[in-house]
Simulated scan of single mutants.
Amino acid sequence: MERSQPRRQVAAMKQSLFDQGLLDEQFIQLEELSDDANPNFVEEIVTLYYRDSSRLISSIEQALIGAKKVKAECTLFREYCRTGNAEG
């Protein structure tokens, strides 16, 4: 009886995530890949996904910051060209 309570909680949480559209049939496919040899497969894949996503988002943020700096310099350069400021 004690073991079925956590399972019900997990099932209810999973159903809630499906209802919210946060999980879909791909999650079910991942679950089907779990077996006795690798019972934590889904957890490992989700962890890797979020770790990689976090790293990629950080890279994108850095690229955006760099792009903003390049844009600012190009705007300044264009203004120098427009005004004939050879020194600029």
Rank of each mutant, 00 (worst) to 15 (best):
E32N: 08
E32Y: 08
E32P: 01
L33V: 05
L33D: 00
S34N: 00
S34L: 02
S34Y: 00
S34I: 04
D35N: 13
D35K: 07
D36M: 06
D36V: 04
D36Q: 06
A37W: 05
P39M: 00
P39E: 07
P39I: 03
P39K: 00
F41M: 07
F41W: 04
F41P: 04
V42Q: 04
V42P: 06
E43S: 13
E43H: 03
E44R: 10
E44F: 06
I45N: 03
I45H: 05
I45P: 02
V46E: 12
T47D: 15
T47R: 10
T47L: 14
L48T: 15
Y49R: 13
Y49G: 08
Y50R: 06
Y50Q: 02
Y50A: 06
Y50K: 07
R51E: 11
D52T: 14
D52H: 09
D52Q: 11
S53M: 13
S54W: 13
S54D: 15
R55V: 14
R55P: 01
L56A: 10
I57H: 04
I57Q: 09
S58A: 11
S58N: 14
S58T: 15
S59L: 08
S59F: 05
S59M: 09
S59Y: 03
I60D: 07
I60T: 05
E61I: 09
E61L: 08
Q62H: 12
Q62M: 12
Q62E: 15
A63K: 14
